[in-house]
Design a protein around this nucleic acid. Sequence first.
DNA 1: CTCTATGCAAATCTTTTGCACGAAC
DNA 2: GTTCGTGCAAAAGATTTGCATAGAG
Lengths: 149, 149
Amino acid sequence: MARQAPAAEHDDIVESLVARMRAHGDRATPARRLLLQALADKPGHLSAEKLAAEVRARAPGVNITTIYRNLYELERLKVVDRTRPVHGPATYHLASAAHGHLACAECGTVTEIPGRLFASLASQASAQYGFVIEPHRSAVVGLCSGCRR
Amino acid sequence: MARQAPAAEHDDIVESLVARMRAHGDRATPARRLLLQALADKPGHLSAEKLAAEVRARAPGVNITTIYRNLYELERLKVVDRTRPVHGPATYHLASAAHGHLACAECGTVTEIPGRLFASLASQASAQYGFVIEPHRSAVVGLCSGCRR
DNA sequence: CTCTATGCAAATCTTTTGCACGAAC
DNA sequence: GTTCGTGCAAAAGATTTGCATAGAG
């Protein structure tokens, strides 16, 4: 339902995130709302440049610098996750449910997988190295089913 | 033993890798030998710039471009692995025994761990997504024991 | 001698920073 | 009215590319 209004569906998500920012003393600006909306609307992992394009579709004046500065702040607040693919610019997405990433070295595609697949690795890394892994920030490199052969 | 001649210890490794390159039609140049030697001598994960410094210690004229071009070729031949840390330039190291990486998001340290810790994740990624992971090319992000608290 | 590898300079791509002005509270 | 956010320009950092020449086979 509401197939014609995909953006509106995420208004509540955006507002709750704006509230979260304000709780940290950050102000609620149009550019921020639009950035959060772009992150909420687009399921995939987007680069700063792509996100800027999304924001500009509604507010043409927004500079890429603003996008970077807000992404940096959002990352600090753990609202968004930043992942670096094998090649090209870093990608960003809302820090949703626990999950990890499979990044294809060949085609660059990033696939989300449930965080529980990291359970075994997580317990061993913790026990043997005192290292606490954060799957949502990690990209495990390899070859996807399409590029495998 | 041979504590005073750490570089010489790896001469055979370097030569076998040079041979491997020649088998692919690549020529054996001084810059390449020195790059491979730097990779063999230094256990850690080094950036192109650091590797250039190592090479220049013995051959001052070598350009960073040459380093990048050779690293690209070595990566293609699967002689070296390339990993992208959370921040900063990509790092390179010899593709030795199967292993993975734990990259601390706080201090940037990269820790090598045995590839077998990825066994569970590997089998599930393969079974459920047809994705073949390559732990040696992957950096699992998190917090190291020192930065954890 | 032929073809690859390198040096050098310049371009490209991604991200960060300084500064002055405009907007949120 | 203060303080923070943004635009613009420029810088910085990392990597790639074009071209002429030096060097390996």
